[in-house]
Design a protein around this nucleic acid. Structure first.
Lengths: 221, 221
DNA sequence: CTGCACGCCGATCTTAATTTCCAAGGGGGC
DNA sequence: GCCCCCTTGGAAATTAAGATCGGCGTGCAG
């Protein structure tokens, strides 16, 4: 462990002796393609170990690339993570809004959203882990991006609720947050018991729970 | 900021010159009391900065104690965190089971649980942050402890659901997880908008959403 | 043919945070 | 009243991970 203990240290005149035996060097690659590969490697490592547990060394190794290459594409580990987070949340937002606009019937809307949510969670890149089990929540940019997504999603739900129940905005928003949370937590639980319950069966259970909860609200006050 | 900038550095012959001017040294204290004080300081720092953002230096400083004292009570930062997590989850579990047993009417049960949950979130030690916004979720002990709590809580809810709806166990469990998630997420949102919505009003909204969602389930199949 | 430019890598630097070492001092037992 | 032991804290060691430095070689343009 002591630095100067290396027996075969090269002579001072020759500090860098490459001596690469064979094709260890990774093939040259267009910049964009390399970037995409690095993102994929990072995704894999972050999902497996979390942000803090992931080492840049391991990400580079996973991509069969040396660390400096990684830093030529992303200025820091944090930036790398933020790029992935942004990408996943953008596509999740698109998915949700797409499901919301897929019909004008509120009942079907809730069902469609729930299915889309379950599909996102079931996606095999495990993006949901990086997003919803982030261990970088204390970072202002991360929590702010997550809050933006949550607000967008909950607002969309709250509009449906408000239309259906005439509840005040603030209260509809609270219910929207609650339903979004229900979707997230139940979908993640479902994923862990996969094989035992079909995606559509599970998401329909939650959809019905949500819809029945909502749909009888207006009659009282 | 440069370390060697200290003008009054002691001579080399005297590496440790305490020179404590006055009562800087913290008072001796019974072991249990000291431990409690350290836990309180750690709670404060963990809540403010998260696990990874919290430094043992800062915890010691907050407790007006030197680091070795901290290590005499807790072998590591991780153990310190686990002690707090365990304590909070134990009392939350107790709260939840107490609310569940406070009545035999399922409707009132759901209401009581929801209120208890909101009270826990509103508690001013901000324990919920340490528990539900942990940035140590990748630690096996942490995630295992959290999963134990979630299972306990969801199981209790699932039993109510199963009794009320005759749904199969697995599906009742899914709904239980979903409702637990709804409680958690909506309560945390409510806390951020505090002042605008009374605790009982908010928790009753969520309780009604949950109960209506559940209560009409049996009529179909 | 030759030079240049781009992308790649080994090796090292730097920083930061946890954990430990060792001398000093005050309170309780005899 | 005195001594011993236990507790305290300043300072340092260790480790680990993020970030960087400087040269190499291949392929294309002139």
């Amino acid at each position: 462990m002591v630095p100067e203990a290396r027996a075969d240290r090269p002579t001072a005149a020759e500090p860098h002796a490459p001596s690469r035996p064979a094709g260890q060097r990774s093939a040259r690659m267009p910049r964009d393609e390399r970037r995409a590969q690095l993102l994929a490697a990072a995704q894999e490592v972050f999902v497996a170990n979390g942000y803090h547990g992931a080492a840049m060394d391991e990400i580079a190794e996973t991509a069969h690339v040396s660390k400096p290459v990684l830093y030529q594409h992303f200025p820091s580990k944090r930036d790398l993570y933020l790029a992935l987070l942004e990408s996943h949340l953008a596509s999740l937002t698109e998915l949700m809004l797409g499901a919301l606009n897929s019909t004008t019937d509120n009942d079907e809307r809730v069902q469609a959203v729930m299915r889309a949510y379950f599909h996102f969670i079931a996606n095999d890149d495990q993006a949901h882990r990086l997003v919803f089990e982030s261990d970088l929540i204390n970072d202002p940019d991360v929590s702010s991006r997550l809050e933006t997504f949550n607000r967008t999603f909950a607002d969309a739900i709250a509009r449906v609720i408000a239309e259906d129940t005439k509840l005040p905005h603030l209260e509809a928003e609270l219910l929207g947050r609650g339903l979004a949370g229900m979707a997230q937590v139940s979908a993640r639980y479902w994923l862990e018991t996969d094989g035992n319950l079909d995606l559509n069966v599970a998401s329909d259970l939650i959809y019905r729970l949500a819809w029945r909860g909502i749909s009888r609200f207006p009659k009282e006050s």
